[in-house]
């Protein structure tokens, strides 16, 4: 059995930042593995641990800098990695899910996995569409917002028995035929920390870089239909009354508010 995990290196923004054009200035950005993808990697590694002969392949679309992130997936237990990059991609607005689905779809077709795990969404753009668009692109079945997977059943019966986390504390129990893409929700497991040994081993695991030509994708296939035209800080509508002073003054004022509201007695 083969499991592909899509991972994305995301930018996180410091509390104070500046915008230049339609981007946040580079100095205010830090890069990290997307939180949802961390859970997707863990789910794949747990599946590999539950079954015999399960190969886990991590795939990312990103520049050389993102190798640090995909090595993290290798350190946590993925067997090998694929990084898709090309000069032709560097200029494309990667917000467009169609572009991502085509690139990842080419990798899926080359790798022919039984399951693909993909985070529900990314911390940075919160688009929430890659997994399902990828499934449709390659003709796989899918389930979105999965917060439980019966790993034994996958290994023994080749069916993904999942729970989808709906709004308001309701879960939907669904059986999904393989091959399938599962969009993984946070909280499905407890992502492990990479061990020192894992980090060392990751350095020698295979990491293939694939260009558009390698994947048989034309530059015209990755043209984006979306154009980010503005970025700005939203107007704050705060009408909060701020409780000022040092911590003990603030606590004193806060205690007064709580007493006044009648929720805390003396």
């Amino acid at each position: 059995m083969k499991v592909l995990v899509t991972v994305k290196e995301v930018a996180t923004v410091e509390d104070d930042f500046e915008i230049s054009g339609t981007e946040i200035e580079e100095t205010y950005l830090d890069y990290d593995l997307n939180e949802w993808d961390d859970y997707a990697v863990e789910e794949a590694v747990q599946l590999a641990e539950a079954g015999d002969d399960v190969e886990v392949v991590a795939v990312t679309i990103g520049p050389e800098r993102s190798e640090e992130t995909i090595r993290m997936a290798l350190a946590k237990g993925a067997d090998r990695a694929v990084r898709v990059w090309d000069d032709a991609i560097a200029d494309v607005e990667l917000l467009d899910v169609e572009t991502k689905a085509r690139l990842l779809g080419a990798v899926v077709e080359a790798e022919n996995p039984d399951l693909v795990f993909s985070g529900v969404q990314a911390n940075d753009d919160s688009f929430g569409a890659t997994g399902v668009a990828l499934a449709e692109t390659v003709g796989f079945e899918w389930a979105a917002v999965v917060n439980a997977l019966d790993t034994e059943k996958v290994v023994d019966e080749s069916v993904a028995s999942v729970r989808r986390e709906l709004e308001g504390g309701i879960e939907e129990l669904t059986d999904v035929e393989l091959p399938a893409v599962l969009a993984i929700q946070t909280g499905i497991n407890e992502p492990r920390y990479a061990s020192l040994r894992g980090i060392r081993q990751a350095q020698s695991k295979p990491l293939d870089v694939q260009s558009l030509a390698d994947l048989g994708v034309g530059a015209e296939d990755v043209a984006s239909s979306l154009d980010v035209t503005a970025m700005y800080e939203p107007e704050t509508e705060s009408e909060a009354q701020y409780l000022d002073g040092d911590a003990s003054e603030q606590a004193g004022k806060l205690a007064d508010v709580l007493r006044e509201k009648g929720v805390v007695g003396e």
């Binding site: 946040i24 917000l95 970025m231 800080e233 939203p234």
Partner: peptide, 17 residues
């Protein structure tokens, strides 16, 4: 109009066609 980076910024995204 949509938000990014956990509601820290808003962006406008144009779809021309």
């Amino acid at each position: 109009t949509r938000e990014m980076y956990g509601s820290k910024v808003e962006t406008t995204v144009d779809v021309a066609e």
